[in-house]
Design a protein around this nucleic acid. Structure first.
Length: 487
RNA sequence: AGCGGUAUCGUCUAGUGGUUAGGACGGGAGAUUCUCAUUCUCCAAACAGGGGUUCAAUUCCCCUUACCGCCGCCA
């Protein structure tokens, strides 16, 4: 068997979408599993909708996900260039070949004429198929149209190609994930392969590029199934070897509609911005349509690659459930090495003056606050009360708690006794334990004792370990906050 | 409308011609901790419907339904 070569071919008309990321991942996994090559190709034939900004975003996102490509626009390779707009001199040659072989013809129809055809089909409740009225234009007629200033587009002659290589009008192929798929080619209109402005269309450029780049397996979303028949025909008409195809189910939003901004993040860079770890995103997205053989859901890409078999992918659509992603993200946050975590968190702490803390204090603060985090960005709120010196914002519930006689009594005792405490975490731990015990003897639950202190010092009823919090905050700030809460 | 695809707990899925249909997220209950969270234990929750084939169908076939996709000089 020849070398496995797969590709991801995004169009830079937006930031890298998670759906594209999943397709990229499955291609990557397939390449890894089969010692093949993973190739990145930028499909920017439509100049109007593409921009360099998006190209950069695609590069960055793919890299962040760890889906490194063996060949691509930036790293090069033996089959470049890897950006379609730089390949425009390649495409005409094969158009000519198709024209010469009679598998393509010039079409002079105007957008208005085409629109009228479509309208008529709709009126008759018939599916629209191009009428092929330009198929048999004579040279004289073409010259006349040209003289009028009309520039022709090139259409592919579907029926001719089909007849040349198949016994009936039914075209069939064996999909890597969906099994046997077929289609009556009589229902496919002669489609445009080169626009009147000279630019190749998607269906044509893809074939030329996949063929020239020696792509062995095309793994992509099932929205491309109907394109596959067109593409196979072009491969055959040009005498290229037809690659194997595999079509993945789509990713849907929780309401079963297309995943869009209103559901939350959709671009990989959005997820990162919101505090998701790319490791979690990759892991989660792999589980959409694929399940590990050992049932262990949390595992790194390398492990997934070992276990991956394309035939095991579910061929149905799957819903992108943010809840599970969040769960997975919190899991990955807990597994992250502390040094790395400390660095990553800084991005979400810019509103605070980190200089208020020593390196050790910062480390300790992260240690006692990272566990409940679902998103890295949750840290912003989680550490709010470590800053601000003697003043802290008291939330409603804490304020309510501070009203009680019990809390007032606890705080008076706390302020009085703590004056003399040595303010180290170790000592505070010991002292507070005793403090709680004393109040317990008076019939106060430890929980309530600590709530009073917590409410006064942090302004909240829940938060990080209280002993460590006091230690980090320091004696002065802690006691001043406590004093302020006393009536 | 036509064509194509898909159908197991709410969600992601495992699984088999005979199973108490398994796991994970989410939900519920409880235990632990100074709180929240973590962790742990337990609970509820599914084979879309109808026909076949078969001793037996969630599993194989057909139909219906639902959902998704495609019908561009977008990709």
């Amino acid at each position: 068997m020849s070398e496995v070569r797969v590709r991801i071919a995004p169009s830079p008309s937006g930031n890298l979408h998670v759906g594209t990321a999943r397709t990229a991942l499955f291609n990557y996994l397939f390449a890894k599993k089969n010692n093949g090559k993973f190739i990145l190709r930028i499909e920017d034939t439509d100049a109007e909708r593409t921009s360099q900004e998006y190209v950069d975003n695609i590069f960055d996102s793919l890299k962040a996900l760890g889906l490194n490509w063996d060949e691509g626009p930036d790293v090069g390779g033996d089959y470049g260039p890897y950006t379609q707009s730089e390949r425009f001199d390649i495409y005409p040659k094969y158009i000519q070949e198709l024209l010469d072989k009679g598998f393509a013809y010039e079409c002079f129809c105007t957008p208005e004429e085409l629109e009228a055809e479509k309208q008529q089909a709709a009126d008759n409740k018939k599916p629209y198929v191009y009428t092929r009225k330009c198929e048999n234009l004579t040279e004289d007629e073409k010259a006349k149209l040209r003289a009028e200033g009309r520039k022709p587009a090139i259409r592919f002659n579907v029926a001719k190609a089909q007849k040349a290589f198949h016994d009936s009008s039914i075209l069939e192929f064996n999909d890597l994930v969906k099994g046997k798929l077929h289609m009556d080619t009589d229902l496919i209109g002669d489609f445009v392969i080169m626009k009147s402005n000279g630019a190749p269309t998607y269906n044509y450029a893809v074939v030329i590029d996949d063929a020239l780049m020696k792509i062995s397996h095309v793994i992509r979303g099932e929205d491309h199934i109907s394109n596959t028949y067109k593409q196979i025909l072009i491969f055959e008409a040009l005498g290229f070897e037809v690659p194997r195809f595999g079509h993945l189910g789509m990713i849907l939003a929780p309401d079963r509609s297309k995943l869009s901004k209103r559901h939350g993040a959709t671009a990989v860079s959005d997820f990162v911005e919101q505090g998701y770890l790319t490791e979690a995103l990759v892991n989660f997205v792999a589980l959409l349509g694929w399940a590990p053989s050992d049932g262990e859901e949390i595992k790194p890409v390398e492990k997934i690659a070992e276990d991956f078999r394309i035939g095991d992918i579910s061929s149905s659509n799957s819903i992108f459930e943010y809840d599970k992603l969040k769960w997975m993200n919190s899991h990955y946050i807990k597994m992250l090495p502390k040094e790395e975590l400390k660095e990553k968190l800084k991005k979400y702490l810019t509103k605070y003056n980190l200089n208020e803390l020593t390196e050790d204090q910062y480390t300790r603060m992260v240690e006692i606050t990272y566990e409940p985090l679902t998103l890295l960005s949750d840290i912003t709120d989680a550490v709010a009360y470590f800053f601000g010196g003697d003043s802290v914002e008291i939330d409603e519930k804490a304020a309510e708690n501070l009203e009680t006689d019990l809390s007032q009594e606890v705080l008076r005792a706390f302020v009085e006794q703590a004056q003399d405490w040595e303010w180290t975490e170790e000592n505070l731990h010991e002292k507070l334990e005793k403090f709680r015990a004393d109040f317990k003897e008076k019939g106060y639950k430890p929980k309530f004792t600590m709530w009073a202190i917590r409410a006064a010092v942090t302004g909240r009823l829940c938060g990080a370990d209280m002993t460590a919090t006091l230690a980090i905050l320091g004696k002065e700030h802690s006691l001043n906050r406590a004093k302020k809460a006393i009536k």
